[in-house]
Design a protein around this nucleic acid. Structure first.
Lengths: 217, 217
DNA sequence: GGCGTTTCTAGACCAATGTCTAATGCCGGC
DNA sequence: GCCGGCATTAGACATTGGTCTAGAAACGCC
């Protein structure tokens, strides 16, 4: 238990029961830790932006609005000092290695025992990279295309990334403007910036580009 | 060899080498068969539309422009009498069962031996359903959402389906019109029809809906 | 505390998208 | 053979989407 007891740890998972279990594990590891929960990307964004001093993020790969590595790529870019551990239902080595290549500090399959989860949390808090048994880190890396798009997505600002996620839900500019409480003209400006950064020419292509970071194989 | 030697068989696969191997297998099974090749969805559409008397379609799941069951769903609807066997690099039982639920008459993993492929072709030509060893047909079926969307996609006309595939590439109406040799106004009419049939309100949502039929898990 | 840079905001303008109406041609049923 | 329904085509019109310009606010850097 080398971590200071005033650590702040963010847990992002849309499943309340699992979130509860993770909180227990965290409390066992770091008794006095402050735990912040997020059940969707919006609350996660709020959490990381309002607590830049956080020591660890436990991130589920499949939450409403994000089904893949786009959230990880963006967080790694905008909050590079925040160690992030991916928590996922899968345990496929290929996906685990992709997560590490995208900058994750560890990978915890949801099938892991509580004891192993606690080991993982402790290891990452001490600066190590934690992987499930039998997985080696030094391997492959990402496909060219995937790495390229991750870099482009990482260049987005927080607002732009949020808008991109809404584009990926098929929302109109007007709906996005309402949700974010700004004018439609503002959203249009964000969309233009997104298209430029992702090097595409319309919103459908932007959504398709981001989906390159999805999990599917 | 109960199949008549004047059978017509369509082979759709974007990999020339593999297509060649399949042709060999088909010729062994049905010596006098007429073989039609297609290397992408456009040529496949042309093939099925111009040879309604075809006896069998061997369809790869991953071709340029189609990455999933959308092509199968649409073909089953518009050419219901054409037995279709899925040929795919995967051998995951879940995907195989999804293929059968979408109306495929068989499933051949690309890892199969020539002998097994020939067995499969013969079986399907005689009206049976052919599955790899160890896979049972009677199971599960599709998720509600997937079945629903398959039904909506199946309702599209050939032209509409082709336009939808181009929407899924992020093309503009103008580009689609040029490719299909019609006016932009025509494409707009098609898009409107597609949106209605898929029960969505813009092209991005249409693309997202179709992607529900993609392979990803 | 200033200062340049980046982000966020938004209005005006033009291009792309989607709807409505309607004509043509094709196919199946009576 | 004739009729009704549907696919396809397309023009006129309304809405949405995207670019350009530009000011205000936040942020790091002297």
């Amino acid at each position: 238990m080398t971590a200071p007891s005033d650590s702040t740890i963010i847990i992002a998972d849309d499943h309340p029961l699992f979130r509860e279990a993770m909180i227990q594990a965290v409390r066992n590891c770091v008794p006095g830790a402050r735990v912040i929960e997020a059940d969707q990307l919006e609350s996660l964004q709020h959490a990381v932006e309002s607590t830049p001093e956080a020591d660890l993020l436990l991130l589920d790969l499949n939450m409403p609005g994000v089904h893949g590595f786009s959230a990880l790529a963006w967080i790694r870019s905008n909050f590079a000092t925040l160690p992030t551990v991916i928590v996922s239902a899968t345990d496929e080595p290929a996906i685990i290695r992709r997560a590490i290549s995208h900058g994750a500090s560890g990978f915890i399959p949801k099938s892991s025992s509580i004891a192993r989860i606690e080991s993982a949390i402790n290891a990452v808090l001490e600066g190590e990279v934690w992987l499930p048994e039998g997985i080696t880190e030094d391997d492959g890396g990402l496909g060219d295309e995937e790495a390229d798009i991750a870099a482009l997505v990482a260049a987005l600002t927080p607002h732009q990334f949020r808008v991109l996620l809404m584009l990926a839900e098929g929302l109109m500019n007007k709906q996005i403007a309402y949700k974010l409480g700004v004018s439609e003209a503002t959203i249009k400006a964000h969309v233009t910036a997104i298209l430029r950064k992702l090097r595409v020419t319309n919103r459908t292509q932007a959504v398709l580009a981001m989906q390159e970071l999805n999990i599917e194989e």
